[in-house]
Nucleic acid binder design. Structure first.
Lengths: 260, 260
DNA sequence: CGGGTGCTTGAGTAACGTCAATTTCGGTGG
DNA sequence: CCACCGAAATTGACGTTACTCAAGCACCCG
């Protein structure tokens, strides 16, 4: 419909074949490593050919060998209960690290599934661990990544435990927006790498509820959605919805109240 | 009513004034450290006088300096949204480590509040980090602790996203039971260190719902509750409730179906 | 003994889930 | 390029779970 293509695709070929050239450098592992040590890090990283939609990086219960940096595309991690109920615990965008949960028991606690054609860097954890022993900066950075994962999960707990369906979806979209912006992409328009079903699952909502919410947000002029192509028309309003009674950063001095 | 006192109190004076003597040794930091190196670990640990109920170990937003090992008592961590909504993200029992989330931003992402008279070991993180650089076993154990925290949060996500109120409470009680057992205490009878309000908050339920559930579980003979003194009469039934359609370890060969 | 806090119980309701019927989209082969 | 198929998404009607509001009770601490 529009001539402008969403910005997501831009990133694909900017990720070079080594860390120094990689466009994701600032949001991945390397920032904590001095240039001189970068080749040590690189020597342990394996790059595989792109994975196709629906394939799995690892499954819940698999022995834990490596963590994975997403180079392009997207990954979801999900947890299956004994009764078969599945909860998507997170979505991982380029530059983010998947699989950190597996260290504890030596087995992965979640299943990692590819959302769209996706390239990853495989980082064998035992090698990484010996390297962190030598590079204090890298060790600290790895602690930071663990810690960030914990904080993300806890933010989601707040969302699932205390927020309305509307607030959950609003917060989710804002989170994606911020993460795209951090990678130098548009924070106003982006392509959702996941289905509505996945969004609903992740937010603890029925898919029908998610669908109705998208419809409502469009009716209220907060966003425009053409399938997975999302444009945030009024981020401030979205923020109001996400965090009732919070002071949101407003762009044009307007305050927006709860929409019916 | 009964002559038997709940087992929780037993632990209090078994925690010696150093790691080697500490009864929690197997569930805390030291298992990964050779005896020869234990004094190095001890040298960085500070032991404070016990904290009183309601006091705070740290607050959300405080600069991150240390992590804390619970020696006796109990701690809750909670996250407050911009609108004031509060979500309790976890409860920490003796031997568990609080504060790992703070590494990422250098500030604590949660507030840690004391539930009952509680003693902690303060472990300055910068010191711990230099030590982990020297002791690979300790480094790995620390990664494990991070990872375990992530897995706990993700299990809770599954609970909040996919389970009924009844299943949430059942799973919560079983989790506590297992953790007490791990510390050599009774898995059948224990004292809840937290209030019903806290339980409700943690599980994303209204306090009235929690209260009603306790009543119902007692009517069904699954457990007996006298205030915070809980006795699990039928753990297998509780497990059935926690994980619909799962095969629970049953003690007497009886299968229990969903109770109305 | 009083006041407060925490817990229980009941009645009414709202938010969200379930079920079901269409419609749209994306991929595939003719 | 178009026709077709299945999966994904939308929309509506209805049902249920768990929340809210409200009242009463039990317990702890001063």
């Amino acid at each position: 419909m529009s001539e402008i293509r969403p910005a997501v695709v831009m990133l694909h070929r900017q990720t070079g074949s080594n860390c120094a050239e990689c466009a994701l450098n600032p949001v991945c592992l390397p920032p904590a490593v001095a240039d001189a040590d970068l080749d040590q890090l690189e020597s342990i990283i394996e790059r595989r050919r792109p994975l196709t939609r629906g394939s799995q990086l690892f499954q819940q219960g698999d022995t834990f060998n490596a963590v994975y940096a997403v180079r392009s595309g997207g990954i979801k991690t999900s947890l299956t209960g004994p009764d078969g109920a599945e909860q998507i615990t997170g979505f991982y965008l380029p530059g983010e690290i998947v699989g950190l949960d597996g260290v504890a028991e030596g087995r992965h606690g979640v299943t990692a599934t590819v959302l769209e054609s996706t390239a990853v860097c495989t980082i064998p954890f035992s090698h990484l661990e010996t390297l962190t022993g030598k590079l204090p900066g890298l060790q600290h950075h790895l602690f930071t990544l663990f810690s960030r994962e914990i904080q993300a999960d806890q933010q989601l707990l707040l969302l699932l435990g205390k927020r309305s369906a509307e607030a959950r979806l609003a917060a989710f979209l804002l989170s994606l927006s911020a993460r795209y912006q951090r990678r130098g992409l548009s924070d106003r328009r982006f392509l959702l790498p996941m289905s509505r079903t996945d969004i609903g699952n992740h937010l603890g909502l029925a898919i029908e509820t998610v669908s109705r919410l998208f419809t409502r947000l469009q009716q209220n002029g907060v966003l425009a959605a053409e399938g997975k192509d999302i444009t945030l028309l009024d981020p401030a309003a979205l923020c109001q919805l996400a965090e009732p009674a919070a002071e949101c950063a407003d762009e044009a001095g307007k305050r927006v109240r709860h929409l019916s």
